[in-house]
Write a protein that binds this DNA or RNA. Structure first.
Lengths: 216, 216
DNA sequence: GCTGGTAGGCGTACGGTGTACTCCTAAGAA
DNA sequence: TTCTTAGGAGTACACCGTACGCCTACCAGC
């Protein structure tokens, strides 16, 4: 076989991620990545079918860094789930610009599959039944994605909240009062609080076993 | 004053939404909307600064249809929250293509502000304290957005799940088994189950009052 | 060492996008 | 009727993703 590849997919993804980190997601283009690598635009297409596929590589690079080793089973399930959620959040949060990409590509990501597998294992061991497992997993995944998004575009302490707190209090009494308070809540505190709420709900579901009967 | 405007912003948004519904979100372009209205491309810029602003109008058109009348206060808070969440989901679900737009524009949407105001009122009346209200609201909003997204790109019964259920069971024992079951869970059932979980968590938070102390 | 074939890499070109700028003209005010 | 102003059209530019065709560096077999 002639002429070995001079670039790995990881190198390609790294270059694209560098462009994103430097110029933002809107700065990502085939031409920019090619320049980053010192090659011509069309040379990229030897490694990638599509811009879409390049984005997938970037997502995989970031999400692949998530530690998916199952946490020690001596700690309670709740804490283990917190650990898994925290790892996912940390890795995505390190590159907030790619959040929109994760939304589009996560369902094809092996890293997310591995993560889901481990979380399902924890849930199963904790005693969640079939249908409950699905709902709990989707709920957790949805929460992390949603929370990261909210954090990224307009956290509680950001300009948006300030604007809200200046709304006419007669038309938005609760909202303006709440926004005043919300400015003092850190993003970590908010994330932890929301997760706490979700986990309490899961625990309640586990205790009662009701609400979502499996199909069987 | 000369020459009254011949188009309202609502007409503009309606035309853009028609394009989206017909050709998908990727078919949305200034040229396409102009053609839909039978005018030249640049004429749109008399009404809108930006493509971004046009998108905002579309989001507002869809989200503005959400009924934000507070549900009757005789029913318990839990049920009232379910009503509000359901209304939001129904309106967005009627135009699934705009989901990505709502992610980018919702924090500037008056309709979302009204919705949030009403939900905060319900939570406040139910007895949630300051910091808890914020977390509960963000949790709810995040859940709806996240769930709609998951529904739209790859629901449990869609092709993605089928692919997952065909994974090598030795490497993904829980995932492949769960995906088999998940295929039989309807999207409505899944949504309701997740919301139920969240509401249980909120109820637990309310009962114990712990976890997320307000800043004061 | 030579040669053939494969695949890496490059340049050009096309159809699309958002939008800045300039012009013409329709319509209300005087 | 004329002036003023804003609506609308047309052109043009920079940028995008990528289809296509070319040249050439590399490795296998001889």
């Amino acid at each position: 076989m002639p002429r070995p590849r001079s670039l790995t997919q990881a190198q390609l993804a790294t270059a694209a991620l560098a462009v994103i980190d430097r110029e933002g997601l809107s700065g990502l283009s085939m031409r920019a990545v090619a320049k980053e690598l010192g090659m011509s635009t069309m040379a990229l297409y030897r490694y990638v079918d599509d811009r879409d596929q390049l984005e997938q590589l970037v997502v995989e690079l970031v999400l692949g860094a998530v530690d998916t080793a199952p946490p020690g089973s001596e700690v309670p399930w709740r804490q283990r789930v917190e650990t898994m959620v925290g790892r996912l959040r940390d890795c995505v949060g390190a590159h907030p610009e790619i959040v929109p990409l994760t939304l589009t590509h996560r369902h094809r990501s092996p890293a997310v599959l591995r993560w889901s597998e481990v979380v399902l294992g924890i849930l199963s061991e904790a005693g969640f039944q079939g249908g409950q497992q699905v709902i709990a997993l989707r709920g957790l995944l949805g929460y992390v994605i949603g929370a990261i998004q909210q954090e990224h575009l307009g956290s509680l302490s950001a300009a948006g909240t300030v604007a809200i707190s200046e709304l006419p209090p007669d038309r938005f009494p609760h909202l303006s009062a709440t926004a005043q308070r919300a400015r003092h809540i850190g993003v970590d505190q908010e994330f932890a609080g929301g997760l706490d709420m979700l986990l309490r709900g899961m625990a309640a579901m586990l205790a009662e076993g009701a609400g979502s009967g499996p199909s069987s």
